[in-house]
Every structure is written in structure tokens, then in C-alpha cells.
Design a protein around this nucleic acid. Structure first.
Length: 280
DNA sequence: GCGTATTCAAACGCTTTTAA
DNA sequence: TTAAAAGCGTTTGAATACGC
């Protein structure tokens, strides 16, 4: 996706050329308007010119905005970042493949998920917390967002737009404290072929995301948790083990009834249990 | 140098939450 | 029930970079 790449590249470029400047700029691209607002743009284009082109004046009228307003500009920029529209010429807009899919009721579920993951920041968060629990506190979530490259000044806005977009894309279907890829593949297997995934989407992620590997019927959180386990005999630092165990405790607390709040992990060095001996 | 596109930052008003 | 506080969404103008 050219728009996404250029936006992301520009974010990096702006930062590197401005180190030390008074104005802090983000190093990772993210939209200022939530997914739902950008879908309105796509619907407006689709409803008036279908797959044809329109100019910004027309689009502004259809969405009841002023073409000069920053809100409209933010919405346009966000729609391009989500991959819903393209701008083949200055001031002209057209639905991208993802945009035409998102206005199709048969494809909208998958298209929304793909649009969400088109955003570098959201992709980074999704990858980082795949199968895990998002920070519960807003401040903690904002710290994560800042760590991924968002300017400290706009961390709250980035978080708000992220949460709304995740909701609208269906990633909060299992609760607002975890990102779960909406399950559309099986449901839409008989529908029209879905749009191609973003170019940067690792193909093996799809294999991991499925409920295969003997985990049929288990919650995606459990599946994701066990997928994070390193291979046997791999070097697994104590800190990483601790993190995994704590995450497991949190997930169990979420998924199962009963008082599990008393479980806490610590890295205190204890006597190791005798490792099963095996002949080499 | 100028125009355009994009990003940033702040202000304002509305909604929701909480405590008395 | 009501008022105060906090949070959130929208809008606006400024700042910045890029292309011509």
C-alpha cells in the first residue's frame, strides 16, 4: 500500500530531520480519525460515484463538511492511512480495493480488520499484544504507544483513536482489554474472495492465527499464549519466563471463574526442580 | 519562493462519572 | 437528585516538509 508506506516513511523522515526541535513528532504513523469516520468517506464515495473519482469539494459536501476544515483533512489522511481511498491526482479521490470491500456487507468484517492492521501503530500493538492482555490503565496504554514511537504530546489522542478503531474493526469483540482478530475466514469462505492482505502482512501469521494445532475450541488468548512458547531446548531467560507466566495468570483470571487474583510471580532464584534426565 | 498536504497542539463544548 | 469533576470528541489554526 503506497499511501501507508509513504505516511510511515514520512513520519520517520520528519522525526529524523527534526531531532532537537521544539516540536516533537511521531516516528510511527497513526490516524487522527477513527476507522468509523473514514468508512463514512468510503461510503460517501461509493454511494455517489461508485468506483469512480471525485474531488475534495464533492466529498466534503457529501459528508457535510467544509473542504478547508482540518477535520476533513484529517479524515482524508486517515482514510488513506487505513488504505480505504487512494489519491491518484491532486484533490481527486477514489476507493481503494480495501475501500470497496469495506462498503460491501459481505466483506466489510474482514476489510475492517485489514484496514485496522494497515496502520503501522496498530499493527505494532497487535503484534506485541497478540494473545496477551492490553494495559488496563489508560496511562499504561499511552506509555506503550509512546514507546512505539508516538509523540508524547498526542499519546492520549492516539490512544483514543486506537480504541475506537479497534472497537469498530471488531478487535474488542472479546473485551476491551485484549485485541483479538475477528473470526471472518470460516464464516465468509463461501463469499466473494477477500481483498489481498496488506503487503507487509507476514504470511505465516495466518497459520498461527488459526485454531489449529490441537487447540480447537480454546480461547484465542490460550492459543496465542502457547504459541509464544519457545522451542524445547531453546534459551529462555528468566525474565521472559516470568513475563509469560504472569501473562498466563492474567489470562486465566480473565477466562476462568474462581478467585485467581492471589497469583503473583517473582524472579527469586529458587532451587531448580531436578530436570528429567535423558540419555544423549 | 509558493502552494499543497500533513501533522501538531490547544481550545471548547458535550457527555459521563462520582460524591454529597 | 444535583452539582462538580473528569474524560472525550470535534474543530481550528499553526507548524512543518515536500514538490513545482
Amino acid at each position: 500500500m503506497a499511501g501507508e508506506n509513504s505516511a510511515s516513511a514520512e513520519a520517520t523522515k520528519l522525526n529524523t530531520s527534526e531531532e532537537g526541535a521544539t516540536k516533537q513528532r511521531s516516528t510511527i504513523a497513526f490516524p487522527y480519525a477513527p476507522l468509523g469516520d473514514t468508512i463514512e468517506l468510503a461510503e460517501a464515495i461509493h454511494g455517489n460515484v461508485g468506483l469512480g473519482e471525485c474531488d475534495d469539494d464533492q466529498l466534503a459536501v457529501w459528508t457535510k463538511q467544509s473542504p478547508k476544515s482540518s477535520g476533513f483533512r484529517v479524515q482524508i489522511a486517515s482514510a488513506r492511512l487505513f488504505g480505504l481511498i487512494t489519491s491518484p491526482a491532486g484533490g481527486k479521490y477514489r476507493l481503494a480495493d480495501l475501500g470497496s470491500a469495506i462498503v460491501d456487507p459481505n466483506q466489510t468484517r474482514e476489510a475492517r480488520a485489514n484496514a485496522f492492521l494497515n496502520v503501522p501503530l496498530y499493527r505494532a500493538i497487535f503484534d506485541k499484544y497478540r494473545g496477551g492482555v492490553l494495559p488496563g490503565q489508560a496511562a499504561a496504554m499511552e506509555r506503550e504507544i509512546v514507546a512505539l514511537g508516538v509523540s508524547d504530546k498526542v499519546k492520549d489522542r492516539a490512544r483514543q483513536v486506537f480504541e475506537r478503531s479497534a472497537e469498530q474493526a471488531g478487535f474488542f469483540a472479546h473485551g476491551r482489554n485484549r485485541l483479538v482478530m475477528p473470526g471472518f475466514a470460516a464464516r465468509q469462505a463461501d463469499a466473494a474472495p477477500p481483498p489481498p492482505p496488506p503487503a507487509d502482512e507476514p504470511q505465516d501469521e495466518k497459520k498461527k492465527g488459526g485454531n489449529g494445532g490441537g487447540f480447537d475450541g480454546h480461547d484465542p488468548l490460550i492459543i496465542g499464549l502457547f504459541q509464544k512458547l519457545p522451542e524445547p531446548e531453546a534459551d529462555w531467560p528468566v525474565a521472559a519466563r516470568l513475563k509469560w507466566l504472569q501473562t498466563a495468570a492474567n489470562i486465566f483470571d480473565l477466562l476462568y471463574k474462581g478467585d485467581g487474583g492471589g497469583i503473583s510471580m517473582s524472579a527469586a532464584r529458587a532451587e531448580r526442580s531436578p530436570r528429567p534426565q535423558h540419555d544423549d
